[in-house]
């Protein structure tokens, strides 16, 4: 295969949950540009339609399936509808998630219901979707499942209970799924984004929250700036493409060095001479 063909997604059908906004839409556009037909699934119809329009503008087919990933019935319908309309599925990207709902709550204000919703959307949904699509992949003896965790899945953050807990779960869900499904020629990998500036791809309420936290995030970014949506979209492209056929159970971090540092804030650069240090 010529090098320039490697990584092309010509004719593939890829489902992206949480595909209406943020990283989901960025992935949809990038993968469409590489030749994939895209199915976007999320709860709200309007953003999905926008992403679909962007995919069609790039000359690819798009299908919109409003879906709540925490509802198994709706997840099954997403798979059926995709197979009905597109004929097949090659890759399933579990991208749906919510950072902290609209109003972050303190520990003692978090209700059982809040906890369940946070874990459901960020972790259980990925399980329901992967379970459903893997049945089809197993029969077909091929397929790729991609999960999207977060650097937060490897570290703690004050008051971020459901998100950080669920994302840590996603990393290990990837491993269990990869081992379980390897014999069916199904590859399961995990994308770990750091702080990515998806401002332009977000609804207004989320934009406000993002603007207020940008300055803080810089402190944890060795490269000194947030990631671009395409930084993650290209990682998705790699994991969708046949370039990653022998890769499974792995997690792939694109975070501007965030997880590599984390012993001091960005910019901290001590100078200690050997004369001072020696005994």
């Amino acid at each position: 295969m010529p090098v320039e063909k490697k990584g092309s997604l010509e004719g593939q059908v890829i489902i992206i949950t949480g595909g209406g906004t943020g990283l989901g839409s960025a992935m949809a556009f990038r993968l469409a540009e590489e030749g994939a037909d895209i199915v976007v699934a999320a709860r709200r119809l309007a953003p999905l339609e926008e992403t679909a329009a962007g995919v069609r503008k790039r000359g690819r087919k798009a299908l919109v399936v409003p879906t709540d990933v925490t509802d198994t019935g709706q997840v099954n319908r997403l798979i059926e509808k995709t197979l009905g309309e597109m004929g097949k599925i090659d890759v399933f990207i579990n991208n749906a998630g919510i950072v902290r709902g609209d109003r972050p709550k303190t520990l003692w204000d978090i209700t059982d219901q809040d906890w369940r919703v946070g874990i459901d959307v960020n972790l259980s949904g990925a399980f329901y979707c992967s379970r459903a699509v893997s049945k089809y992949f197993a029969e077909r003896k091929s397929g790729k499942i991609i999960l999207v965790a977060s650097g937060e899945g490897f570290r703690g953050q004050r008051n971020s209970f459901m998100y950080n807990t669920a994302k840590a779960g996603v990393v290990n869900l990837t491993r269990v799924m990869a081992l379980t499904l390897a014999e069916f020629n199904i590859r399961v990998n995990c994308i770990v984004p750091g702080f990515v500036d998806t401002y332009d791809l977000q609804p207004e309420a989320t934009q406000k929250l993002m603007a207020s936290t940008r300055a803080t995030w810089r402190l944890f970014l060795p490269v000194g700036h947030m990631g671009k949506p395409d930084d993650i979209a290209y990682l998705a492209l790699f994991l969708c493409s046949d370039a990653s056929d022998y890769i499974t159970g792995g997690y792939f971090v694109s975070d501007g060095g965030g997880l590599t540092g984390g012993f001091a804030t960005t910019g901290y650069a001590p100078v200690v001479s050997l004369m001072e240090g020696l005994p």
Binding site: A269, P270, V271, V272, S273, L274, E276, G277, L278, P279
Partner: peptide
Amino acid sequence: VHFFQPFLKIRNAE
């Protein structure tokens, strides 16, 4: 023993 210097300034002996 503590020792911190920019990478390219570090001498072999150090």
